[in-house]
């Protein structure tokens, strides 16, 4: 997504419309309207993967990715909170490997609160929240070493991953761990698909918190974003049709319209 200095009138209108649709969906959901979410295998498999670690008596490893505090990492931490609650209920140890130093205190707080919420505050071990390194490959190798020494049974990799993704997952596979991965960035998805048992792709990653908790607010927002995507697709098809069948005249009209809308960011 390109960054702009300031919005123009088109973007203001688009943002207002998209936000209104999402907020309206949230309000409808809060009023009790049932919202359907299709099954997402990667997220459904989380409980099964935790169960495997419990049966084998070995720990779980969670990596929230390499990004700093942002939307992707916050979503990863939401998934972490869910996993911690499940793992705490089954008395399974969970290790978190952190790369970005500013994520470290937030992850600590999320894990501690999740253990409290699960009614097992005594199970919380601060030394299991580990800052590995802020260098990409030092982080990858440090995490792989952690996987091997602790003999983890299950790997969860949710967040922003880059070139080190294949190092993490290929080694995890070689160690015999069940692996569930999720990232919105399409670049690393092929590597996850080749090496992990379950993969959560693209938009499904942002749907995770709604899918796992089924809170009306979150499911409403999910449905709202799908409606917005549908509208965008319709606009794209309309534009393609106009450009194809009206050709030059459409281009002229488009240029004039865009210049008018672009005023407001100058």
């Amino acid at each position: 997504m390109a960054t702009l200095e300031h919005a123009n009138w088109f973007m203001r209108g688009l943002f207002a419309a998209m936000s209104a649709i999402i907020v309206a969906s949230v309000l409808l959901a809060q009023r009790g309207r049932e919202m359907f979410i299709r099954r997402i295998p990667g997220l459904t498999a989380i409980e099964e993967a935790i169960g495997r670690a419990t049966e084998m008596g070995r720990p779980i490893l969670f990596s929230p990715g390499l990004d700093g505090i942002g939307i992707i990492t916050l979503q990863a931490l939401a998934i972490l909170a869910y996993i911690v609650r499940l793992a705490a209920a089954q008395a399974t140890r969970l290790i978190v490997a952190i790369r970005a130093s500013e994520v470290y205190p937030v992850a600590e707080e999320v894990v501690r609160e999740a253990y409290d919420a699960a009614g097992r505050p005594e199970a919380y071990r601060p030394e299991d929240i580990r800052f590995i390194s802020d260098e990409q490959f030092a982080y990858a190798l440090g995490t792989v070493g952690l996987m091997a020494r602790e003999r983890v049974a299950t790997n969860f990799l949710f967040g922003g991953f880059y070139a080190e993704a294949l190092i993490l997952t290929e080694n995890g596979r070689a160690l015999g761990a069940v692996q569930v991965a999720g990232t919105p960035d399409p670049t690393q998805i092929p590597f996850f698909i080749a090496t992990c048992d379950y993969v959560v792709i693209g938009d499904e990653f942002y749907a995770a918190s709604a899918y796992l908790t089924r809170e009306p607010t979150l499911t409403g927002s999910l449905v709202g974003q799908d409606i917005v995507k549908g509208i965008l697709v319709a606009l794209v098809l309309l534009g393609v049709g106009i450009a194809t069948y009206l050709g030059g005249a459409a281009n002229e009209a488009h240029n004039l319209l865009w210049q008018a809308l672009a005023r407001g960011s100058q």
Binding site: A2, T3, L4, E5, Y162, A163, D185, T187, S265
Partner: peptide, 17 residues
Amino acid sequence: TGLAGMTELWLGLIQGP
């Protein structure tokens, strides 16, 4: 670059405007 996200900054803040 080998890093994601940098191009969007240049395009949005320099090339575009």
